[in-house]
Design a protein around this nucleic acid. Structure first.
Lengths: 185, 185
DNA sequence: AATACTATCTATAATAG
DNA sequence: TCTATTATAGATAGTAT
């Protein structure tokens, strides 16, 4: 596309890089938008740039995220001690929810706490090796805003539609809570 | 693009929908791939289709996720009781990490537990209103595999590069652990 | 960083198999 | 569903502003 066929490889010239980035991101987002409008699917696109590979690797090894995540992915049944089993079995659904909220809260506080400690140790690199300031994350959500017969959805219905994404976005944002998000649309 | 100009709106004809979906998804993914190769950014694309809007809305209201998420997003400082403060303040970084792992584990178990309970109550609709079987989630990761000067990265370096995405993906997969993922690449 | 132009390249709608 | 073809619509590299 354009005045000349170009090779698909990393652009080294800073100026060209910026311009191409801007143009192609716009193009990509338009494609996603069209796709959603035509098929009724919903799409989230997350763009990362400028993070520190080595630091990321080191941090992940230090904290052991990969292993833990893999483990929790693979679990078909969760190991539980007898005490834990008894505690949970004894709970009704509402009790469980309450307890879940408490644990969730504990978890958030701990994450915050540990992040603060980490910041104390090294104020630029976070858990995931992202460098504050130089790391950027773009989030963009696409979803059809049209009915099959043409006219746009009303505001209320649109907001309902966005619920699922909102949840995913919040999950992601929380995960990267100490990174500056450039775009959230 | 194509033999005739077409309006960008939801396609009602099933056959045309499938064909267009297949073609445009391929196109979108190629664009993302090119974008990453040229700019050095990393992109994750998540596609959702076939979830139940109303059920999703009801579940979210029931569980109150939105509020909770918003709250945790907005927190600059976390409210903590004196007991909790004392407990956490007394811990070193390693203690905190251990405790975090335990809480994380508790959380995973609870999520699993509550999902099972929910399944018992209604075996088709999960927490987020996704309908098992009819809901599909596509995950695709894009990242440059080329250096600026052309040749491809070696395998080890490529795997390091993927670390960050791996973590995001795992977070998402865990969030939607009872939904069937169609594509994870 | 954003916008405009335009020659040229790329994607895809329509169609057939 | 998948694949191939092709006419046309759409995207964008190069360039200037």
């Amino acid at each position: 596309m354009g005045k000349r066929k170009i090779e698909i490889k990393k652009i080294s010239d800073k100026k060209t890089l910026k311009v191409t980035c801007s143009k192609r991101r716009k193009g990509l987002f338009r494609k996603a938008d069209d796709f959603c409008s035509k098929t009724g699917a919903h799409i989230a696109i997350i763009t990362f740039s400028g993070f520190n590979l080595e630091a990321s690797q080191e941090r992940r090894e230090e904290v052991g995220l990969s292993e833990k995540e893999n483990e929790s992915l693979e679990r078909e049944e969760v190991y539980m001690s007898d005490d834990e089993k008894e505690l949970l079995e004894g709970m009704g659904l509402n009790d469980l929810k309450q307890y879940a909220l408490w644990v969730e809260d504990q978890r958030n506080k701990l994450i915050w706490k540990i992040e603060n400690r980490k910041r104390g140790e090294s104020c630029t690199v976070d858990w995931l090796g992202m460098i504050k300031g130089s790391t950027s994350v773009d989030l963009k959500r696409f979803g059809t805003n049209m009915r099959e017969d043409g006219p746009r959805r009303d505001e209320e219905e649109r907001i309902m539609h966005e619920g699922l994404f909102e949840y995913v976005m919040m999950t992601i944002i929380r995960t990267f809570s100490n990174v500056v998000f450039r775009t959230i649309v």
